[in-house]
């Protein structure tokens, strides 16, 4: 299986994108009152943590941070087999909160659909917004992000890979063109 890689965002590019998203979130929500961040495992939870750090720096005040595992809400058990089930860690009530859902790559929208279902089972948020580092297109559901790090036009069979270092900091985003393999 041959593959061809292109770096589309390096670490400073990622830094800038996240900082911008943090500002946009604060601007749009007029501060952090009733605002919570929930990252989607795995990838989105690390990015949510980075956003939380930035928001704390800007506002001088911490923000509630949680992680949601959507394995149980997937719609593809039959075709993909049983993926490992991770833990959902949301140690606060999301009732009447403005939830910013964070993911690394937005693709078909099915993951976001699953994550929203998961959130709804946990409570009744006032609103749900969506922040993603990369939007690669090919939506299969009527879902649109509120905050985007970078729009990257891709072919269906291509892959986007967000790499994290050992401290779970995003360091690089690659576009991978592969032969002999379907999309993710």
């Amino acid at each position: 299986m041959s593959e061809q890689n292109t770096v589309i965002l390096n670490s400073s590019g990622i830094e800038r994108a996240l900082t911008r998203i943090a500002h946009e979130i604060l601007e749009r929500n007029k501060g952090i009152d009733d605002l919570v961040l929930v990252g989607i495992r795995t990838g989105g939870d690390h990015l949510a943590a980075e956003l939380a750090r930035r928001i704390e720096t800007i506002e001088g005040q911490g923000i509630e941070l949680g992680a949601v595992d959507i394995t149980m809400y997937r719609d593809d058990l039959g075709s993909r087999g049983s993926l490992p089930v991770g833990k959902t860690d949301i140690l606060f009530s999301i009732d009447e909160k403005k939830v910013v859902l964070v993911d690394d790559v937005l693709f078909t929208g099915r993951t976001i659909r699953a994550a929203m279902d998961a959130l709804m089972d946990l409570g009744r948020p006032r609103s749900i917004q969506l922040a993603v580092l990369i939007d690669r297109g090919h939506r299969e559901l009527p879902i649109r992000p509120d905050y985007v790090g970078r729009n990257v036009p891709t072919a269906r069979e291509e892959d986007i890979e967000v790499r994290f270092d050992q401290d779970n900091r995003a360091v690089e985003v690659r576009l991978i063109k592969q032969q002999g393999r379907g999309g993710n």
Partner: peptide
Amino acid sequence: YLVAGGESEDKD
């Protein structure tokens, strides 16, 4: 859960 998805190969 594991048995329900146990037949097909894991693609991830």
